[in-house]
């Protein structure tokens, strides 16, 4: 087999088919590892790795259907490739490439949110609008443990409860916000306790267990779809990698701790159980991972071939109408 024959398109997820969930996780892991390699090679800039959070992302995505929208953060930067955004375009975001920006309607996915918690109200607004428009679509909004401390998280959760907006708030508690442990974010015993205050259902799941995540999200999505409003899901896991490639966790946490959590990572664990149950064989697993790796390598080559943006991109997209915008040179340039 030559490498082109092995190229894959992204795996389709079915919450009732554990092998499909495993495939989704392998896809994201491989995407993430390739991105870290690209960063080390200087082919992209600072990158936010999500190594170990594949189960949360895949489990959640498997629970929604195509007309449902995702509202991810920078940590879920690769999730949209499971809805068809070309891999190289997703990576080109970290090359500072404006070509990485996409139309959310094409993928049912909002742009990754950089200002923490600021996108949660967008999910509420979108979901509520769909609901009153007579659709039964659901918004899936990701946010971190750190983001729960932002005032905007409170506002979004509160208004979603009041307006019964069909939103699933998925709080990815990876226990760290850069150098700040979750114990410094909140005095609450667990983040899911916050749901009570908003009068909405809450569940806490093992974020390293893709099946558990998929099941819990499935219940929350169903509630939302049936007009029973939002839910708060806390997916408890651990940020195994650094905050981003520029971060040095040795300044603030022990490697013993990291090793402990690394041993819990979701993919190996699931692979073993699939093999034990006879749903997957070693050779199948190996072949699939190899094929995904090849797909990623090929995409990385396409990344290098993407045209570099030029000056003409500068004003692009700022306004819908044509306007003159003040320019660098003291001249006026057309947007």
């Amino acid at each position: 087999m030559n490498s082109t024959e092995q190229l894959l398109s992204y795996p389709r997820l079915d919450p009732l088919d554990p092998v499909s969930l495993w495939r989704g996780m392998v896809w994201l892991r491989s995407y993430d590892e390739r991105a870290v390699a690209l960063q080390r090679q200087g082919r992209i800039g600072t990158y936010a790795t999500f190594w170990g959070e594949e189960a949360v992302q895949v489990g959640a995505l498997s629970a929604i259907r195509h007309s449902d929208w995702m509202f991810p953060t920078y940590r879920e930067n690769g999730i949209v490739t499971l809805r068809g955004l070309p891999l190289e375009r997703a990576w080109s975001y970290f090359r500072g490439d404006p070509g990485a920006l996409f139309d959310p309607r094409e993928y049912g996915c909002a742009p990754q949110s950089v200002p923490l918690a600021s996108h949660l109200s967008h999910a509420v607004g979108w979901a509520w609008s769909r609901m009153v428009g007579g659709h039964d679509d659901v918004a899936l909004a990701f946010f971190g443990d750190g983001a729960t401390s932002e005032g905007e998280a409170h506002e979004a959760l509160n208004v979603a409860g009041v307006m019964k907006a069909p939103v699933v708030f998925l709080c990815v508690n990876n226990q760290w916000a850069i150098s700040t442990p979750v114990s410094r974010q909140t005095a609450a015993k667990q983040l899911v306790d916050k749901a009570i205050g908003y009068g909405i259902p809450g569940e806490r799941v093992d974020g390293f267990d893709v099946i558990e995540v998929a099941e819990s999200l499935g219940r929350a999505v169903e509630r939302a779809r049936n007009g029973n409003g939002p839910s708060f899901i806390e997916a408890f896991c651990y940020r195994i990698g650094p905050h981003a490639t520029a971060d040095d966790p040795s300044l603030y946490r022990s490697s013993v701790d990291e090793e402990h959590w690394r041993s819990m990572e979701p993919i190996g664990r699931m692979e073993e159980s699939l093999i034990r149950e006879g749903l997957l064989s070693y050779s199948q697993a190996k072949a699939y991972k190899e094929a995904v790796r090849t797909t990623m390598l090929e995409a990385a080559r396409r990344l290098d071939r993407l045209p570099r943006p030029d000056r003409s991109w500068l004003g692009k997209g700022t306004f819908a109408s044509e306007v003159f915008i003040g320019g660098l040179t003291g001249e006026e340039v057309l947007s």
Binding site: G96, R311, W313, L314, G315, I325, G327, L328
Partner: peptide, 25 residues
């Protein structure tokens, strides 16, 4: 004469050198 950044959001970083007024400019 004003020599400034553009009236647009700061660009994705691959274009930042085009946005920030350079000494030559």
């Amino acid at each position: 004469v004003r020599i400034t950044g553009l009236d647009t959001p700061f660009p994705m970083f691959s274009l930042e050198k085009e946005y920030i007024p350079s000494s030559e400019l």
